[in-house]
Design a protein around this nucleic acid. Sequence first.
DNA 1: TTGATTGTTACCGG
DNA 2: TCCGGTAACAATCA
Length: 266
Amino acid sequence: MPEGHTIHRLARDQSPLLIGRPVRIHSPQGRFADEAAQLDGCTIDEIRPCGKHLFYRFENAPTWHVHLGLYGKFRPFEGTEPEPRGQVRAAVSTEAGGFHLVGPNTCELIDEDGVQKVLERLGPDPLTKNAKSATMIERIGSSRRAIGGLLLDQSIIAGVGNIYRADALFLESIHPETRGVDLTERQLRDLWRRLKSLLQIGLKHNKIITADPKVVGKPRSRMTRDERLLIYKADSCPQCSGPVETLSIASRRIDACPKCQPRVAL
DNA sequence: TTGATTGTTACCGG
DNA sequence: TCCGGTAACAATCA
């Protein structure tokens, strides 16, 4: 259930355990068996995150491309591999431990051309070092689509999901139905910085910080100011205490405060 | 059992 | 041509 920060976090956490040594890979339920056999015993050179995609680059073997989709997750273990539970597509391990990959959306082997094809379809990822906002700003600024929809479009900006789009727009006082062309360059630069900041906070804490106590996992009263000032699934606006408006943009829920995020007059 | 969900894509129609 | 709506896929939980 990832937005981009989850993917970057996984790459960061898995790298010291897996890179530079041979790994055992198998597919307990067979749905990835042929591919796993190709990788078994090979050495991982690099675990590269981009947006919501993960690329495991191997020495002398194809690249393993994983996208978790809505439900996929990595179930880590220490020491000996446990009995698989659920739809375990692949099991990866070293002597120290490893993980079960459960229910991913994408799980495939691709060559370098394949990697490039996936990357070409992604916009800049704010969590990637030296990522440039220019592409995002240019594409949004020339689009008549609603900004709420544009932020979910991975070819415009990679790694942003449903929660961060809502909270970033709230923090920047932009109504989700505002058209891209109606935003100023200043607003777009601020929006990029805000998304980057939110993703970095998520990366640091290893969870999305929102106003929903169930998601955050700690009481609202104990959140810092930055953590609390968010609107996704909030009962009322954290800023003005007014009612929250729930909309559907790009077929997904988005919340907004009609007072703090005024609609632009057309 | 039903509905919702931190995702993506193909397809259709205005 | 652009863009929104919808279904499909898939897994889990309240």
